[in-house]
Design a protein around this nucleic acid. Structure first.
Length: 583
RNA sequence: GCGCCCGUAGCUCAACUGGAUAGAGCACUGGCCUUCUAAGCCAGUUGUUGCAGGUUCGAGUCCUGCCGGGCGCGCCA
């Protein structure tokens, strides 16, 4: 509806040579927006004012000229000039009825755009290190990423979802050592557990489940001999690095790697299961280790070297990140010969582009904000456009229980894992609350509210609207009446109550909301919209009876609430929330 | 110290990328329940958009400087 009006305005402008052919305004595109205030009509455009600015003419005169040339359309009831030069449009009832009929005809597809082959988007999100179960912060990444993916698809983009698994590097060695030590403990060999090790209960569980066939038997003395002191007397990092060395030495690289691999696999399986249970799935799990195995890091560094983007200093290899706006140059190969995480990320993003993705959308924690400049610099140095990379940052989550801030520390014993949150408040409330706020705002997650089964809880309020429609149809059946949709569509003109117009208008906004939310990677727009829609429905429900004796009116009303149910279901599906028929 | 993000009603947050009189929910006040679900309903009140300038027809939104909060500033990932 919005784009149709924009087209009308453009046709009018094109028939006005002094506007259409003026070079000053060639870059000005026609934008039509919903009015904020219903008294101004349904849609408005500020095009006349923007033309006026560039041309130095009177905006109201330009507006009048545009209105004069506006093609006849049954979409529009009334057009007017207001204020400094706004053009306001009042949509006709007929247009609303057309829109409603198309909701019913399109069903699940309503509001979804045609698939466009380009650009292909690669959406990377969560990508939490496989060192333990996901916590509530990762939950926000999962819910946000999944919803943005759904929104982009609804907006017509081809999008693949990917999880980058940091299975290489020192953190994984620390994980391996932690599990190895617990394993020894369980067989009666006790070594003081490192301060820097992973201490969670899940480490014990994984240790107990490991396949250790063929591994050498070791004594505590063998392992402890020659180790430096752990914190607080010594340095905890030195201590754990020494333990890793020891593990390699005594167990042999092969067995140490076996423990490490099994540990990662076990944790990753748990993460995948948790996310799947949360309705979040990926097209691919990309392993950092594969970059090394397939020589992708070396290849990328070779290219950078050929382009003279690298130099040697202090025994390390540096990338000229400052040439691309970063605040300092970055190390890609350490003086010990190992490549950095950043080097891997250059190769990873290069690989994404090589796999045919035009637009790389990374969802990162807000603590990584400095990192995006570096990755973009890497991409540009590899010969890609900097705008191929888009980073969306997610702010932190704070849990509140009865107004009390919950400690996020692992020690507190309060739930901190995503799984615990899901079990306590349910997937629906969790998915909904996670995307209720703008991603660049801190999220205060109210546990009591998320669990409450009252209209204060926006999830229930919206789901209840859906269930209520189903309930009306059950009533209809109880009264042995049939819903005739064709008759309903034929009689939409009977829907002239203020609540009916309001509900129809809200339904016509759905495609615009999808587009807005997708373009801005902002699921909260959809959340707010669904609340508005549910509110319009409940208000209508309270004001009027749907199952009336008059067949024509009843079918028209049932058509309206059927469309409402479809849009609520469609919107909730994008957020990953169920649409129940009864509650 | 430098960089990025944030600051909107008593509370939690919107505001379609510069539009008209800044909106929702909660809370608060008054009225309402023989109804397709009271798991409520209807109506009302709520503002120096952190502060001070600037840009223009128009600024919560853009620019500058302060104040306050978060995060970052590794040869960690």
């Amino acid at each position: 509806m919005k784009s149709s009006i924009a087209q009308l305005v453009e046709q009018a402008i094109n028939s006005l040579p002094d506007l259409a052919e003026a070079p000053e305004v060639s870059s000005i595109s026609t934008t039509v927006e919903r009015t904020r205030d219903a008294r101004h009509g349904d849609f408005m455009t500020n095009i006349a004012m923007r033309f006026a600015k560039s041309l130095g003419r009177n905006p109201r005169e330009i507006a009048a000229a545009i209105i004069d040339k506006l093609p006849e359309s049954e979409l529009i009831d009334k057009v007017g000039i207001a204020g400094p030069g706004f053009i306001n449009f009042h949509v006709s009832s007929k247009a609303l009825h057309h829109a409603l009929a198309s909701v019913l005809q399109q069903g699940k597809c309503y509001g979804h755009q045609e698939i466009r082959p380009e650009p292909r988007i690669l959406l990377e999100f969560v990508s939490a290190n496989p060192t333990g179960p996901l916590h509530v912060g990762h939950g926000r990444h999962a819910a946000y990423g999944a919803t943005v993916g759904n929104l982009l698809e609804a907006a017509g983009f081809k999008v693949d979802r990917e999880y980058y698994v940091n299975d290489a590097g020192r953190q994984m060695d620390i994980l391996g050592v932690s599990i190895w030590l617990r394993l020894l403990e369980q067989s009666g060999v006790t070594i003081s557990f490192p301060e820097a090790g992973y201490k969670g209960d899940y480490i014990q569980d994984i240790a107990a489940s490991l396949d250790i066939s063929g591994m050498p038997k070791l004594s505590a003395d063998e392992i402890s001999s020659g180790l430096p002191a752990d914190a607080p007397e010594g340095d905890k990092e030195e201590y754990i690095d020494a333990l890793i060395e020891k593990g390699h030495e005594l167990l042999g690289i092969h067995h140490f790697q076996r423990i490490r691999r099994q540990s990662i696999d076990s944790i990753l399986a748990d993460i995948e299961d948790d996310l799947a249970g949360f309705g979040v799935t990926f097209d691919r799990w990309f392993f950092e280790q594969s970059l090394t195995d397939d020589n992708l890091i070396d290849n990328a560094l070779t290219i950078l070297k050929e382009r003279n983007m690298l130099y040697e200093k202090d025994g390390a290899t540096w990338f000229r990140a400052t040439d691309y706006g970063d605040e300092k140059d970055r190390v890609v190969v350490r003086d010990n010969g190992k490549t950095t995480y950043f080097a891997a990320d250059i190769a990873y993003h290069d690989d994404k582009r090589k796999r045919g993705y035009d637009h790389l959308l990374d969802i990162l924690g807000s603590d990584h904000h400095g990192y995006q400049v570096r990755v973009r610099a890497g991409l540009e140095a590899m010969g890609y456009g900097g705008d191929n990379l888009e980073v969306e940052l997610i702010q932190f989550v704070t849990l509140y229980r009865a107004g009390e801030k919950q400690s996020m520390s692992t020690r507190s014993g309060e739930f901190v894992t995503l799984r615990q949150l899901r079990e306590e408040v349910g997937n629906d409330a969790a998915r909904f609350f996670y995307v209720m706020r703008s991603n660049d705002q801190h999220l205060d997650f109210d546990l009591e509210l998320a669990k409450s089964r009252s209209n204060d809880n926006p999830v229930y309020y919206i789901q209840y609207a859906h269930a209520r429609v189903a309930s009306v149809f059950r009533q209809l059946q109880d009264r042995s009446l049939q819903y005739d949709q064709a008759a309903g569509i034929a009689n939409l003109a009977l829907l002239e109550k203020i609540h009916e117009k309001s509900l129809m208008t809200t339904l016509t906004r759905f495609p615009e909301v999808i587009e807005l939310a997708a373009n801005n990677r902002a699921p909260q727009h959809l959340v707010h919209y669904l609340r508005d829609l549910a509110n319009d429905f409940h208000t209508y429900y309270n004001a009027h009876t749907f199952i009336v004796d008059d067949d024509a009116l009843r079918n028209a009303r049932l058509a309206l609430i059927t469309a409402t149910r479809a849009v609520i279901a469609s919107g909730l599906a994008i957020i990953g929330v169920s649409a129940p028929d009864s509650m």
